[in-house]
């Protein structure tokens, strides 16, 4: 769901650049104050993992593919502010080096995946694991992934409508419809990633989050 150049009008992409820049500023500030130095390489490894996972498009129905976004997964492990930094670094490299996602749309893409996806993923995970404290971990990770992709896609549809690129209702319906199976894939990969951590590094599921 990386928005290319040309889909958003100037008022929309400039506003989203400002919002994202502000949020990244808060996030860097928090990282400088709260994140222990020994945690930083871990965040880097997680970012590297999510970057590669984002390249692995899987086919979904109707001649369409989807890929893991990873914002909810990082937010579950390290917290939503750390997830914003991780997603921002990935989107920067994708945009500048691989021309995946437009330069003018970078702020919007950071907003949709890093801010909306990360915070919705994080708080839906917290909510579900609060309701089902015993065995809810994997279910919470699944739903957090699903909801984060759906809300990122919804934000994207709203921006396209604000830009006058596509009318609101047809755009919203088409984008949510196509991202439903992609969101289910995101949830399943979250489960796989959490199971991998439980086997290899269960300590990482108990970190302080930022």
């Amino acid at each position: 769901m990386h928005i290319p150049d040309g889909f958003l009008d100037t008022k929309t992409w400039v506003s989203l650049y400002l919002v994202s820049a502000g949020a990244i500023g808060i996030s860097v500030n928090r990282a400088n104050r709260q994140m222990e130095d020994k945690r930083i390489p871990l965040m880097g490894v997680m970012a590297a993992f999510v970057f590669v996972a984002q390249m692995l498009n899987f086919p979904v129905a109707g001649g369409t593919s989807g890929h893991f976004v990873g914002a909810a997964f990082i937010a579950i492990l390290l917290g939503p502010w750390a997830a914003l930094l991780v997603i921002t670094s990935i989107l920067l490299v994708q945009c500048l080096l691989f021309q995946d996602g437009g330069l003018t749309a970078l702020g919007a893409n950071i907003f949709n995946m890093g801010i909306v996806g990360g915070f919705i993923g994080f708080y839906s995970y917290l909510g579900i694991s609060y309701l089902f404290p015993k065995k809810g971990l994997l279910a919470a990770a699944f739903l957090a992934g699903f909801l984060s992709v759906l809300t990122s896609a919804t934000a994207c549809a709203l921006e396209l409508a604000f830009s006058g690129t596509v009318p609101l209702m047809p755009g919203l319906i088409a984008i949510s419809f196509v991202h439903t199976p992609i969101g289910l894939g995101e949830g399943l990969i979250n489960i796989g990633a959490i199971l991998f951590l439980q086997k290899t590094r269960p300590d990482l599921l108990e970190l302080d989050r930022m």
């Binding site: 990386h2 290319p4 498009n57 109707g62 593919s65 890929h67 437009g102 992609i182």
Partner: peptide, 22 residues
């Protein structure tokens, strides 16, 4: 990895705004 269009590209094709990609 699959080279099929992703979710947003699919919608952009179907609703006719893919040509705006700059």
């Amino acid at each position: 990895a699959s080279e099929l269009p992703d979710g947003l590209e699919r919608v952009a094709h179907d609703l006719g705004f893919m040509k705006q990609d700059k």
